[in-house]
Amino acid sequence: MTTKLNYHPDKAMLVEFSAGTLETAPSICISAHLHFCEACRTELLSLNEIGAQLMSEATPVPVDDAALESALDAVMAVIDQPQRVETAVKDQPNKSGFPFSISKLIANAESTLTWKRLTSSVDIAQFKTGQKAFEVALHKICAGGKTPKHDHNGVEYTVVLKGSFSDERAVYKEGDFLMRQPGDVHQPMGAQNGECICLSALAAPIKLSNPLGFLMRPWLRINPM
């Protein structure tokens, strides 16, 4: 599962993730990358220490003993309700091989996660994530499938979850994290040896390079939900 990856989120983005200030959709993409990337997981342990250190250096808010005791009593009262006690943090076994957050989104979507055909080579399944800034979706490219050449109207994050794909610049494998911005034109192609599934978060529709692009309507809108 954990292999050496070539494409990682940038450090400043990891800092925002560690501080909890990164938006939901890019956070989902980072969490998917972490599932595959030991190096970034280790790095985040250190980045969390920055937050912990800043928190512990801050001047503690003076709380008088009586207030502290009564706050503790209130917490103990909640704790003593037996149904609130969780003994284990293990969640249901993750059979899909997908990152936990993605499995949870799939489980949450239940029957509503539907694959829709975008072109003969690409299917899409959109997730409900409770935010409006990005469309979050899975894209499935069939073996050897070509996607239309396109530019980006907004930022796009992509994490390869299964298989691999390539564009003019490189080959991207399971776990690789990519960010594309306006001006980055590319034409992703699925690997010959099997289908490729990617997670993507898209802030704006892509811009098709083909002059007849307007005919490919499903590509031209996004659906954040």
């Binding site: 599962m1 969490s31 972490l34 030991e38 997981r41 280790t42 957050s101 949870k104 994530t129 409770g130």
Partner: peptide
């Protein structure tokens, strides 16, 4: 800031993969 049910909590982003690598 959200009235609808949110499918993910922040700690879900920090879930370790099953075969965890020792630090």
């Amino acid at each position: 800031s959200n009235t609808q049910h949110l499918p993910l909590e922040n700690e879900d982003f920090w879930h370790e993969p099953d075969e965890e690598t020792p630090v």
